[in-house]
Lab assay of single mutants.
Amino acid sequence: MPVRRGHVAPQNTFLDTIIRKFEGQSRKFIIANARVENCAVIYCNDGFCELCGYSRAEVMQRPCTCDFLHGPRTQRRAAAQIAQALLGAEERKVEIAFYRKDGSCFLCLVDVVPVKNEDGAVIMFILNFEVVMEKDMVGSPAHDTNHRGPPTSWLAPGRAKTFRLKLPALLALTARESSVRSGGAGGAGAPGAVVVDVDLTPAAPSSESLALDEVTAMDNHVAGLGPAEERRALVGPGSPPRSAPGQLPSPRAHSLNPDASGSSCSLARTRSRESCASVRRASSADDIEAMRAGVLPPPPRHASTGAMHPLRSGLLNSTSDSDLVRYRTISKIPQITLNFVDLKGDPFLASPTSDREIIAPKIKERTHNVTEKVTQVLSLGADVLPEYKLQAPRIHRWTILHYSPFKAVWDWLILLLVIYTAVFTPYSAAFLLKETEEGPPATECGYACQPLAVVDLIVDIMFIVDILINFRTTYVNANEEVVSHPGRIAVHYFKGWFLIDMVAAIPFDLLI
């Protein structure tokens, strides 16, 4: 008679799926529990143990900040960024110097990925580790590398530091407007667009060049630039800015003055950032001319202004700041037409079709709590990747769950009947059967004279019903998954307890 339990259901295979997918890609990662103190490590794979030199037993239950890997060259700011990422709910990448158990130093890129439950609360953290440099290539500990984003994938490793954006290309926007319009339909740009040429040739750093990471940081200074100062900065030398009595002219307006920039070969870094931020506020060169004239017309309804409409929906549905990093990277690809469009465009503009998908598509409701890094690593669709929660398995109709209350009560009843059979069957065979043979035949009273025979008949009927119930009862397979398919249940029961239950259900007393 089957006594099969499996009270692990309803099970959740999400954690096993993450481990299996990460292991298949030869990654070095740990999984931490966000619900406990210090976000203790609950799993670390073999790749991480080989990377740091510690065994799994030495890593388990330690804080996922990996303070046991810190050393003299470990930056405090990087460690603080990892700790801050564990307090938030967004994906974050941090470069930090770690030390192995043998004392060797290596520069590592740590990717902190939160995993949320159905309520939107962070319950786990996945920390992925990628070695960037070994100890002989690690720089000085005073050099802070965590304020910069990861290198873009479309640049060669040897040319990542030679990417320079020439400031004269930004200063000569109005001069290039006529050349853009003359391109017409034969050019790649839309009317009114501004073409910015980027020099990728390796050259020595000069005062006129600005690194790509500095251009990325310009967006942080746009908020500090007032509207009046932006307007004066875009007017140009024809209309000098008016300053109040006793007030000095704005240095932001002076930063885009061609006369002032041409007199000296070098520009201050602050002026460069502010000038680029001011130019980015204009949607095209037409807006710059309109600002000089004193009238700013409404933005025209053409394809170039609607190019950012799908980007707005993608940004609203993005799951991490990696989408913004990807957008900034692609927006700086050289030799393309940049349409400086305000994100607050007309909502009635139709979304044009684009061959290049900048932001990841909208994630469906079932995966809105899973970050983009987890979705990318697992390579699963929205119909396959579940949320991290207890999910009731989908069972067929008329199927009994093996952990249901009805099955528990039924098993206790069958257990009592088995005990009765084990006690009274030998007793009936030894004593009652002998008395029946010696006594007179009682054929007239039937079952009324033999109450134990009636009980034995009921017990046999219950055993037959138990066999039928076992054909529709779920079970737990070797992978700790609840199986509810009727065919698989029948095959599993035939290979197991079916023969024993059938022999126990045969009414031998009635056959004798």
Score class of each variant (00 low, 15 high):
P2C: 01
G6L: 11
V8W: 14
Q11F: 12
D16R: 11
I18G: 01
E23W: 01
E23P: 01
C44M: 01
C49D: 01
E50I: 05
C52W: 15
C52E: 01
A57G: 14
A57H: 09
E58S: 04
V59G: 01
M60R: 01
Q61R: 13
F68K: 01
H70Y: 10
R76W: 05
I82L: 15
L86K: 01
D102P: 01
G103S: 15
L107R: 14
V112L: 09
V113D: 11
F125Y: 15
N128S: 12
V131K: 08
V132Q: 15
D136V: 06
A142V: 14
T145N: 15
N146V: 12
P151A: 13
T152H: 06
G158N: 15
R164N: 11
L165H: 14
L170S: 14
E177A: 08
R181D: 09
G187P: 03
V195T: 15
V198I: 12
P202C: 01
S207I: 15
S207Q: 15
L210W: 15
L212T: 14
E214K: 05
E214G: 06
V215E: 15
T216V: 05
D219Y: 06
V222W: 09
V222C: 09
G236C: 04
P237Q: 05
P240L: 13
P240D: 13
P251Q: 11
R252L: 05
H254F: 15
S255Q: 12
L256T: 05
D259H: 04
S261T: 06
A268M: 06
S272F: 07
C276L: 08
S278G: 09
I288R: 11
E289M: 14
G294C: 09
V295E: 15
P297Y: 07
P298R: 07
H302D: 11
A303F: 14
S304F: 08
G306S: 14
A307R: 11
L316F: 07
N317I: 09
N317P: 06
S318D: 11
S318W: 15
L324D: 10
K332W: 01
K332G: 09
K332R: 07
I333A: 09
Q335L: 04
T337C: 12
N339Q: 06
D342E: 07
T353K: 13
I358L: 07
I359F: 05
K364Q: 09
H368L: 14
N369I: 11
V374M: 07
A382D: 11
